[in-house]
Design a binder for these strands. Structure first.
Length: 825
RNA sequence: GCCCGGAUGGUGGAAUUGGUAGACACACGGGACUUAAAAUCCCGAGGACCCGGAAGGGUCCGUGCCGGUUCGAGUCCGGCUCCGGGCACCA
């Protein structure tokens, strides 16, 4: 054993051992409980840095901890290898995306190995390999069969910089989630996954995902945005052939409908515009509204613009004629694209009615002192014909009932969630396995012809559409139906499709008979603990849930949900910003490893705060973690000979008092660390407890005249520290374990157990309060009666001083903790 | 605007069910070692005030603000302020 802590050499040594013995390889083993822990796999964008390391360190603590606890742990790693940055690198630097991606993977794999993350590297996957995406293509075909994948022309989000379509989830505040360019609209043909068919199930299961953070669940619920209401028809005056269908969540307010509004792009508008000269005016209004970007149209505080039509409709409940408007505040994409307006009970309608001088009818009795504008609260119905006197909830039911009875409408549930647009007009992605035949139209590729391999020999310019379109060998293929000439689809799939099922592939990554080998899938799924950033709350995490349900319905998996529990780790922040290459505030893992070692880097990130919170990078904090490991090393080095000479098993009650206390602390620490890691993921307090035990050990070793049994307790303490530290700093722990003459590696050692007996205190420190303020502390034997403790408490000099001349009213006694004497006078 | 978090020393954070607020660490100050520095080791420390020659001892205040419940509140309840995040003309 070297006197100095040589982190680099030690880490190299143990990484080689793990690599050569394939220490973390697992197979299905029904004799053990399984534990599948997974960190969101990375996009191989270049290099990882200390901002990325955090999530892997967290996952590794759990993986190593659970192995020691006797679980059969699946902890795999792979690469989300398709994506735009690879293509951009190709455009900018002339490197093929495949080459660029594979080089990055090679480098990043090496970095993860150097951090000592305990992956089963035999299960490594890259989603850009045909062996991977062929199964995705197969699922696509099956989804197509069931109508879960479909093609349509629609208005979609378009990123002008990425030159591709984006799904709704990938637009954040009107900007592209990846490059932050402002997103525009385009009418384009594209492929969609019918996620809306699962809206209800996705929503219902939210409440069963008890292992997920509340905020992620809330974000998903809001994103799905279920609302219950009614849909019904408004007759158009003098036009019996026309009906305007409207959607409302407040069918109870129909008697307050004083006008109705259509979205400017509503398809009925053309037929409603009949008055002379009206068409030109309406066209002008439409053009004015539609030329604005989505951003401008929804900007805050802007007045609602509208245009009155000559046509009028009828409120079917009252028979009263009402005016019709086009207005920018009604959106074609939600509901029916038309609304009944109730300015009394809807603020938007209220604003519009005020600017256009329209009638306002209140249909809910206002609370006393109400001086607001539109009232959206609960109350008793007024001015509402047959609904008068009812509550809002009851009136809703009655109004819907009335609509059904008269054949005008029905109850209707709407969602904010829209189908997932998966077409990408880019090269570096999984080909969509369909063809277009002049004779047969769109034809799916035959399953036996899969995979449709993405060709490598393409010219990537970034201009003029997908390079696949100008690749003759790819694009022209025989029609799977008639054998005639057909053209392949050149759109590729959104890379979020690959990440929607990769966790399944890890169960049997080399299986050639399907996406997952059924036994392996049944054994490992679902993921027990998933770990990743909050930024995927409505992206990847929603898609993966949807895809899992589809796979279940297609018979590929048995689970309803992919991830049992989710840990959303916070960002690593430096100088007030998320650590990232573009911000220029990255701390290189190479530099940290070179200066301190991987263990120090890991320990710092785990110690600086709980995993769900953001973590402020601190160079001094890293120093502190390093100092602790160095002290531990030196301690072991200095006392090694003495410790190796004794056995570490001791009889607690034969020890001198201070060593009995140390022995008790060892067991308390085991309990604390176990509970912190297992139940709460509070690795920071777990590490703090280990440090405390070490501080106590350092103090105890000063006692030169200790008996041999005392040395044995110190040895037991040190071994406990090493074992408890292993999940956090595995290299130094493994090395120190070996230094203490252990012949077998720490990798196979069980997590220590505490004994309840050892935890029992002999003495209790009781806080004595007078009227809730601490006035003294007494130490009493653990078996002292409550009565006696109270007598002792009253006798405590400072306590009696405070009680002098006062009348004791009662004594509150919390056993083992405190005595509070309530006195007056 | 709506929804969800959060606010504790100079700093990161701890206090798990209402029971000693500030664990553990960083930074800082003092000391030891050293020609010196680094490293290391030891000691100190929430704030204000008081007693004492000193070592020491004491009182009050203190977890964003105001109020409440309780023997007792960082923790529970009501009302605010500020910060962060999500959604946002979704009818």
């Amino acid at each position: 054993m070297e006197e100095r802590y040589q982190a680099k050499a030690i880490e190299r040594k143990w990484q080689r051992v793990w690599e050569e013995t394939k220490a973390f390889r697992v197979t299905e083993d029904v004799s053990k409980p399984k534990y599948y822990v997974l960190e969101m796999f990375p996009y191989p964008s270049g290099r990882i840095h200390m901002g990325h390391v955090r999530v892997y360190a967290i996952g590794d603590v759990l993986a190593r901890f659970k192995r020691m606890r006797g679980y059969n742990v699946l902890h795999p790693m792979g690469w989300d290898a398709f994506g735009l940055p690879a293509e951009n690198a190709a455009i900018e630097r002339g490197i093929h995306p495949a080459k660029w991606t594979m080089e990055n993977i090679g480098y990043m794999r090496d970095q993860l190995k150097k951090m000592g993350i305990s992956y089963d590297w035999d299960r490594e996957i890259a989603t850009s390999e045909p062996e991977y995406y062929r199964w995705e293509q197969l699922i696509f075909l099956r989804m197509l069969e069931r109508g879960l994948a479909y093609r349509k022309r629609s208005t979609v989000n378009w990123c002008p910089s990425c030159q591709t379509v984006l799904a709704n989830e990938q637009v954040e505040g009107g900007r592209c989630w990846r490059c932050e360019s402002e997103v525009t609209k385009r009418d384009i043909d594209g492929w969609f996954f019918k996620i809306t068919a699962y809206a209800d199930e996705l929503l219902d299961w939210c409440d069963r995902l008890t292992g997920w953070p509340e905020r992620v669940i809330t974000m998903q619920k809001n994103w799905i945005g279920r609302s219950e209401g009614a849909e019904f028809d408004l007759p158009v005056v003098g036009r019996p052939e026309l009906k305007i269908r409207v959607y409302t969540t407040r069918p109870d307010t129909v008697f307050g409908m004083t006008y109705a509004v259509l979205a400017p792009e509503h398809p009925l508008v053309d037929q409603l515009v009949t008055a002379p000269g009206e068409r030109t005016e309406v066209e002008r209004f439409r053009a004015e509204v539609l030329k604005e970007s989505e951003q401008e149209r929804v900007a805050e505080d802007r007045p609602k613009r509208g245009r009155r039509l000559s046509a009028r409709a009828v409120n079917p409940f009252t028979g009263v004629e009402i005016p019709l408007f086009l207005a920018d505040y009604v959106l074609m994409i939600y509901g029916t694209g038309a609304i009944m307006a109730v300015p009394g009970e809807d603020q938007r309608d209220w604003d519009f009615a005020k600017t256009h001088g329209l009638d306002i009818i209140e249909t809910v009795k206002r609370p006393p002192n109400w001086n607001g504008e539109a009232y959206t609260g609960d109350g008793i119905k007024i001015n509402s014909g047959f609904l008068d006197g009812l509550t809002v909830a009851e009136a809703r039911r009655r109004a819907i009932h009335w609509l059904v009875e008269h054949g005008l409408g029905e109850a209707k549930v709407n969602y904010r969630l829209r189908d997932w647009g998966i077409s990408r007009q880019r090269y570096w992605g999984a080909p969509i396995p369909v063809l277009y035949c002049d004779a047969c139209g769109m034809v799916p590729e035959k399953e036996e012809n899969l995979p449709v391999v993405l060709p490598r020999d393409v010219q990537i310019s970034g201009k003029g559409g997908s390079p696949l379109a100008s690749h003759p060998a790819f694009i022209s293929a025989p029609c799977p139906r008639c054998g005639g000439k057909a053209r392949r689809e050149t759109d590729t799939m959104d890379t979020f499709v690959e990440s929607s099922w990769y966790f399944l592939r890890y169960c049997s990554p080399h299986f050639t008979g399907g996406m997952v080998e059924p036994t392996a899938g049944a054994y490992w799924m679902p993921v027990d603990q998933y770990i990743g950033g909050i930024e995927h709350a409505v992206l990847h995490l929603l898609y993966a849930r949807f895809y899992t349900k589809v796979l279940r319905d297609l018979g590929f998996v048995k689970v309803d949900e992919p991830f049992n529990a989710l840990l959303s780790q916070g960002m690593v922040v430096k100088d007030g910003a998320k650590m990232s290459k573009s911000k220029g505030n990255v701390v290189s893992d190479d530099v940290i490893r070179d200066k301190y070692g991987a263990d120090t880097g890991r320990l710092f990130e785990l110690f600086a705060g709980p995993p769900e919170k953001d973590l402020e990078w601190s160079d001094q904090g890293v120093e502190g973690a390093y100092r602790f490991l160095t002290r531990l090393w030196r301690f072991t080095f200095q006392h090694r000979e003495a410790l190796v000479a004794v056995r570490s098993d001791v009889a607690q009650n034969e020890l001198p008092a201070d060593f009995r206390n140390l022995y008790r602390l060892i067991h308390k620490t085991i309990k604390k660390v176990t509970e912190d890691v297992e139940g709460r993921f509070h690795f920071n307090t777990a590490i703090a407890a280990i440090m405390e035990l070490f501080n106590a050990l350092s103090a105890s070793v000063q006692n030169e005249s200790r008996p041999e049994s005392g040395t044995a307790v110190i040895k037991a303490g040190l071994e406990t520290i090493i074992t408890l530290l292993y999940p956090f700093a595995p290299h130094i722990a493994s090395e120190l374990w070996e230094c203490l003459d252990h012949k077998t590696s720490l990798d196979g050692v069980s997590w220590p157990k505490y004994s309840a007996e050892a935890l029992e205190e002999e003495q209790l420190l009781i806080v004595v309060q007078v009227n809730g303020k601490v006035r003294g502390k007494i130490t009493v034997p653990a078996d002292m009666s409550q009565k006696q403790i109270e007598t002792e408490a009253l006798a405590e000099p400072r306590v009696s001083l405070f009680l002098d001349g006062k009348k004791i009213e009662k004594i509150v006694h919390v056993p083992g903790r405190l005595v509070n004497i309530v006195a007056e006078g």
